[in-house]
Design a protein around this nucleic acid. Structure first.
Lengths: 114, 114
DNA sequence: TTTTATACATCGAACTTCAATGTATGTTTG
DNA sequence: CAAACATACATTGAAGTTCGATGTATAAAA
């Protein structure tokens, strides 16, 4: 199974991260593991990809961070979704469904059996 | 209805364009109209967005171009999908379906009624 | 004690979107 | 017939994005 394209990663990263944080607060390293696990290894975010996205989402006010000390004694930056973030997630879900319907429609016009 | 995000446009532009060209050969200006029409006005490519994508796809060998004179007497650059392009379209469809399943799965874990 | 896993961060190259701008020509309208 | 509009291609530059590479630090395991 080859890697998913950069474009697809870009389109899905925000809704995926916000969805994960809507369920539970989490931190960067764990989010990477979660995505890998949920996707059955098909989506793998590098740290250089995820952290800038988290910083962007925080700057936009969709998530909020706080440093905590884990039981292990290790420092972690936990992220929570904000009210703004929940609104954004709804919008992104709608947009995803919209585009999914459109391209599915296009593929129906000219069927291409996969 | 607000505009779809840049990321979603980026993720869908190649499969949409290749799908249109798989059905019929076409040219830049007409592709813009087609996408607008098929999407019910929800996706609007500007010329500054579409032309670079067409040039990129041609450079990669997924589409081929030829100048023709239309009945109107106007010059048009027609694009056709290549065999490589058809292969690429299949791959992109599979990738789209994969990511769609993954994010749908994530949304099912934490349902959010739209 | 060395390696591995965890955990954060930034840098820079390569690429992308897209509004703005430029050129050119056929068609319609006042 | 002149002006406006629609068609048709193209490039530029700003702003943003992905992501491999690299850097720092610490806990756990070998």
């Amino acid at each position: 199974m080859e890697k998913l394209s950069k474009e697809l990663i870009g389109a899905s990263s925000t809704p995926i991260i916000l969805s994960i944080l809507k369920k539970n607060e989490s931190y960067g390293y764990e989010i990477i593991q979660s995505i890998k696990e949920i996707s059955g290894g098909k989506i793998e975010f590098g740290e250089g990809t995820l952290y800038p996205v988290l910083h962007k989402l925080e700057k936009k006010g969709f998530i909020e961070s706080s440093w905590k000390i884990a039981e292990s004694g290790r420092k972690r930056k936990y992220y929570n979704i904000s009210n703004e973030g929940e609104k954004e997630l709804k919008t992104e879900k709608q947009n995803w469904n919209t585009i999914n319907q459109i391209i599915t429609k296009i593929w129906k016009i000219e069927p291409n059996l996969i």
